[in-house]
Every structure is written in structure tokens, then in C-alpha cells.
Amino acid sequence: MDNIAGKKSSLTWAVHISVVVLVALWLFPTVGLFVSSFRTGDQISSSGWWQSLSTQESQLSPIRIEGDETATGDAFVIEGTLISGDTTVSAWGTSSREPNAYEPGETVDLGDGQTLTVNDDSTYVLTGPETFEGTRLPRVFMTASSPPVWTVENYGTVLFTGTAAAGIGQAFLNTLTVSIPATIIPILIAAFAAYALAWMEFPGRALLVATVVGLLVVPLQLALIPLLQIHNTIGIGKGYLGVWLAHTGFGLPLAIYLLRNYMVGLPRDIIENAKVDGASDFQIFVKIILPLSFPALASFAIFQFLWTWNDLLVALVFLGADDDSLVLTGRLVNLLGSRGGDWEILATSAFVSIAVPLVVFFSMQRYLVRGLLAGSVK
């Protein structure tokens, strides 16, 4: 009696737990990336994003004392501030072996009559009986606490520095220039082809459907070099037209297959009645089929846009790797190599790269399931 139709499965709780786990696995890194994009590099490297709202205590990189000395009586003095900002020093030292040897405000004998005092506000006083000119001044190791720091400068640096080492503004525009036409063109072509394969009678239709299904398994890498040679022969090898056509060719099999399956499932009576009323195939396609097929069109648009937005291989092959034509994924690869320690720049760039796909997905996700189930239920 456990398999009675309509009875709720006893494993529903497992499905719910699995969904929660999958959502958490996706949500936590995204939220962490978003939070990190508004933090400074020092705070990112010293604490996790989940600690971004609390005061952080961390071991700072050693700082060498520098400044102009002044003569006071028989002593020479150098004064200054080691770090700026609202930071409180909790311990300090002059050796990497004992970085927390002294308390703030404690005066330490450095030898040769030299003394050093570091206060909790990171101000210091270095004194000595002889001039410090030509001598190597000591380094200071500090453990300090600092309040949360939030900034939008990361986005200004990333989006508005052009093609500089930290900027992705031009790459962002290049990616939009590639993704939008490369999504619209295959949808337009596939919609016409899908209607013909679904509702028009002509010789070889079944063979064309089988060919489309076969093209779904053609590896992308197998066609890149021959396609590039063809593009170079006709003069569109390195340019946006070439990459648009490449993405169109690689996306058409899935688009035609998906849209045809959906259109086949549309009510036949509507189309037959339209033909009886004198409507042409083009009028039926534009006024009836396209509006009814919007879920399938939106479903494919999501996949095609995500594919073209996150693509690196096709863009490098058909556009190149120079700064004027480099896409966002290529720019992020360069940032990993040139600014591997600037975590605030990397976090901001990565979040910008996923922000647009997230907007596209959530604005059209209600059509996704309906489009994926196209033709599965009669």
C-alpha cells in the first residue's frame, strides 16, 4: 500500500534537505563574494567574510620605521605613525620570532643606547645617542584590532579604469557585445527552423531532425580550427561577426531541438483553424506560435546567454587576447596572474562577472522548467 498513486512519498524530507543543502552550497559563496567586494584587501586577507561586521584582530605585516630625525639635547629622535586609520595596537615586537613581545606604551632597549616606544594608536618614538643617518632602522611587528571598513572604491577601480591592470570596464562591454547578439541570432534562426520541422510538410524533414540530434554531440573543440580557417578565408576571422556566427553555429542544434519539441506539443486545432481562416505559415508563426512558445524561447535564452557570457575558449580563438577585444573571463584570468594578492580587486571583479547572469536567470527562471519539459508530456 506504500505505492498508492497520489500518496505523498515518505522520502519527501530527504528531497527538502537536499534542496536546502544545494541552495546553501550555491548561496554562501555568492554572498561571501558580494560582502568581500566591499571590504579592503587587508581585512579580506586577515578574516573571513562572515566576520566582516565585527572588530578584527590580526597580525600585520612588518613595517620599517622611517622619518626625519630631530636633535633634542644630546639625543636624536624620530617620531611618526606606523599605520593610519582607526586601529588599536594590542602587542608589538621587533623580531619575527617574538612579534608580540611588548605591550603598547612600553619602552624597549634596542642596544647601543637606542630605545623604541610604540603606543596603542601606532605612534612611535625612536631615540638614540647618535644620528640615525646611514643606519638601517628597525622593523616593527604588530598585532592590531580594527573596526569593520566598507568601501565602494573597489567597484570604481574595477569598472572605470579602462584597460589598466585592475580594470574590467572594457572587458565588460566586450562581453555584452558578444553575448547579446550571440543569444538573439540563434533564437531567431532556430525559431523559424523549429516551426518548419514541427508543422510544415516537406521531403527530408525526418532526416533533418535526425541531423540536428546528431549535431548535439559534436565536440566544440573539434570544430574550432576548421571554423576559424573558414572565417579567415572569408575575412571575418578576428572580429565580433566571427564570434557571433561561431556561437550561433554551436548553439543552433540545442535551440532547434528544444523549440521543435515544444512547438510539436502545441494544440493542432489552433493551427488548423488559423489555416482555415486563411492565415499563411508566416502569420501563424508570428501571431500564434511565437507567443505560445515564449517559455521555450526564454529557457534557451537563459542557457545561451550564460554560455556566451562565461565563455573563454571561443572568444580567445575568434577575438584574440589583446586589451581592446578581451572578454570578461579573459580579463579575470589576467587579474589572477597580475594581481593575485589584491583580493579586493579579484572579489569585486568576480562578483561583477556573475551579477549580470544572476539578473538574467532570476528574471526568466519561471520559464525555465516549462521550457526544459518541452515535449515530455502529451
Rank of each mutant, 00 (worst) to 15 (best):
V356R: 01
S95K: 07
E57T: 15
Q56T: 13
S47A: 12
I65L: 12
I236R: 02
N273T: 12
D112Y: 07
V125G: 01
L33T: 06
R205G: 08
A144L: 10
R136M: 15
Y195P: 00
T143P: 01
S179T: 11
S376T: 14
W199V: 13
L11K: 14
L358W: 01
G67L: 10
D109N: 07
T88F: 09
F294I: 15
L228C: 07
E272G: 11
V108W: 01
Y367M: 14
K275G: 13
Y195W: 07
G330D: 09
F172E: 08
L312F: 10
I44S: 03
I78Q: 03
P99R: 15
E69L: 10
I288L: 10
L197S: 06
T177F: 03
F282K: 05
V333T: 10
N154F: 02
V264I: 15
V356K: 02
I230V: 15
E66R: 13
L336D: 09
D86C: 06
T55M: 12
N261M: 11
E106N: 02
D42Y: 03
S52Q: 04
T157R: 13
G337F: 07
T163M: 15
A190T: 12
L258W: 01
I270S: 08
L220E: 11
S36N: 12
P267K: 10
F361I: 14
A321F: 04
L319H: 05
V152Y: 04
P29W: 01
